[in-house]
């Protein structure tokens, strides 16, 4: 399988590390190999936070160099990824928190990720809404694996909330695909 590079980015406290952890866990269920790395500030809230996955690495280098799929949940995370986004990559930015998406030859889609989380009942579930969108676009793993990974990873009292957040994120992509041809897998 060819290598895929994924980044979840935003500000500290948005659950970006957890999003990557859930996806890594889902991919492990399917026997895929991953490298997961991260960067965050010493503060527990705020500041740039990013979590990266390299799936089925071909070169053996564990950090992202050319991103295929990028989630941006806060404007402050835009600059950090600029210049590392692969041509033709799928970039999904939140419609409330990102005013100026990164420039370049990639497919940018603006989706109501935070708003969808709010509708589900907790703004902090925007990370898992984003996961739904990533899986919806990329088909990187089966929905079933991801739902299982949510069960395995999040505390039991938050499982239902996160399952709903995932499904809504996934539906966001299918609902908008006709209007937004960018919402397709990276070739």
């Amino acid at each position: 399988m060819s290598e895929i590079q994924i980044r979840f980015s935003g500000s500290g406290g948005q659950g970006l590390q957890l999003a990557a952890k859930i996806l890594a866990s889902a991919l492990a269920l399917e026997g895929r190999s991953i490298s997961m790395s991260q960067s965050y500030e010493p503060t527990s809230r705020g500041g740039l936070s990013r979590s990266d996955l390299v799936v089925d690495s071909s070169a053996g280098y564990p950090l992202v160099t050319e991103i295929d799929y990028l989630i941006i949940l806060d404007q402050l995370a835009v600059e950090n990824s600029t210049g590392m986004i692969k041509s033709g990559a799928a970039v999904i930015v939140d419609n409330e928190r990102v005013d100026a998406p990164p420039p370049g030859e990639h497919k940018t889609s603006t989706l109501p990720l935070v708003q969808t989380a709010r509708e589900v009942g907790n703004i902090r579930a925007a990370n898992v809404v984003s996961l739904g969108a990533i899986v919806g676009i990329s088909n990187i793993c089966a929905q079933k694996s991801l739902l299982q990974a949510i069960h395995d990873t999040v505390p039991s009292r938050f499982v239902d909330l996160n399952l709903e957040a995932f499904k809504r994120g996934y539906a966001l992509v299918s609902a908008n695909r006709e209007e937004d041809p960018h919402l397709t897998a990276v070739s």
Binding site: K21, A24, A28, R32, S33, I34, S35, M36, S37, Q38, P62, L63
Partner: peptide, 9 residues
Amino acid sequence: EVIGHLVES
């Protein structure tokens, strides 16, 4: 830090 925090299969 990268290797300490890196998660690999």
